[in-house]
Structure formats: structure tokens, C-alpha cells
């Protein structure tokens, strides 16, 4: 269940992980995209950090909403609207429930609606969908997250900029899937599920 403490902890850990892996994420984005995913996410998470420090929201909904607005307004590209929409949908539902399963499911639904993509198209959905299922089944662990990220390697992209590379996208991990992997491993580290 999300609380003010563990949600803030989660976002703090996610920010730190993104900053640490910024260059790696941009490297992943170079062969199949335009090499800026790490920079864009880094800029967005810095803004999230600053806004949360400044506004000090006192409830989970406020935290999720601030995060959504910062990601929407600072990340740009496709990742901004996708991550932003996910957090916005989670924020909306958080007035009804703070259970992680339904919240992540709402986030996933938002991503699918905004990006018009499905499972298997080599996008962040290929991490979000199995994670949502594993949370529901009570089986989510780091290995499951890493396996989901890794699964995008053998897929051929049919959405987003990587789709222009066609078959040549096979063999590369999707950068959005990798950053989503960090989102969920830091979620586990923050103790959100325990």
C-alpha cells in the first residue's frame, strides 16, 4: 500500500537511479532512437525532486499529481506524456484506493490509451504489463522485473521511433522498458509492497 513516506522514498530512489543510469539510458536509445532518453528522464526527475521538496505534498494523491505534472512538463518526447499520463491516472485513482495493484493497472491503462500501443511492440508496456500482473499475483521480485526488461531485446519495435529501424531494432533493450524497470525495482526497494 502506498503511504506518504514510502511514495516519497520510492520517487527519491527512482530519481537517484535515473541520474546514475542517465548515460546508459541514452546509450540504449542511440541505436534504435535518438539517444536522449537518459537526458530527458534526468531532466524530468530533477524537476520532480525540486517540486516535491518545494511543495511538500501531505497526501499520496498530491505526490502522484505533482510527479505527473512535472514529468508532463519537463520530459518532452514520447516518455513525458507516457510517464506523465501513468502518474496522472494513478493520482486520480488514489482518492479511492492506495493499493499498489489497482493503481499500477490504472497507470498501465493510461499509457496504452495515450500511446496506442499493446504488449509485444517493444515499449515500456512490455514491462508495465507483466509487473501489473505479478503485483496482482503477489509474485513481483527484481528477477521478474529484469526478465521483463530483457524480454524487449528480442522484440521488433512496431511503435515509436524505434519502429523506423524495423528488424534492426531486434537485439536492443528498449530504453523506455529499461527506465520502467528502474521505476519498479526502486518501488520494491522503497518497501511499497511489504
Amino acid at each position: 500500500m502506498l503511504t506518504v513516506e514510502n511514495t516519497l522514498k520510492w520517487l527519491e530512489l527512482f530519481d537517484a537511479k535515473i541520474q546514475a543510469e542517465k548515460d546508459y539510458l541514452s546509450e540504449l536509445d542511440t541505436p534504435i532512437g535518438d539517444g536522449d532518453h537518459g537526458n530527458n528522464m534526468s531532466r524530468g526527475l530533477l524537476a520532480v525532486h525540486d517540486a516535491l521538496t518545494k511543495q511538500q505534498p501531505t497526501d499520496v494523491q498530491g505526490i502522484l499529481k505533482t510527479t505527473a505534472m512535472m514529468l508532463i512538463s519537463k520530459v518532452g518526447g514520447a516518455s513525458g506524456p507516457l510517464y506523465g499520463t501513468a502518474f496522472l491516472e494513478m493520482a486520480k485513482l488514489s482518492s479511492t484506493t492506495l493499493e499498489v495493484g489497482p493503481l499500477l493497472a490504472a497507470g498501465l491503462e493510461g499509457i496504452q490509451k495515450r500511446g496506442h500501443a499493446q504488449v509485444g511492440e517493444k515499449t515500456l508496456i512490455d514491462v508495465w504489463a507483466p509487473v501489473v500482473k505479478a503485483v496482482e499475483d503477489g509474485t513481483l521480485d527484481v528477477a521478474a522485473i529484469e526478465a521483463a526488461v530483457e524480454s524487449t531485446k528480442d522484440m521488433q519495435a512496431t511503435k515509436g521511433r524505434a519502429s523506423y529501424v524495423g528488424e534492426r531494432s531486434i537485439g536492443h533493450v528498449d530504453p523506455g522498458a529499461a527506465s520502467s524497470g528502474y521505476l519498479f525495482t526502486t518501488m520494491l526497494m522503497a518497501g511499497v509492497l511489504s
Partner: peptide
């Protein structure tokens, strides 16, 4: 004007 090679954001 978005960031380099990156779409501008909806608020802008």
C-alpha cells in the same frame, strides 16, 4: 520550441 530533437511539452 522543444528540447533538441525532443517534442515540446503540452503545457508549452
Amino acid at each position: 520550441c522543444g528540447q533538441v530533437f525532443t517534442s515540446p511539452t503540452p503545457d508549452q
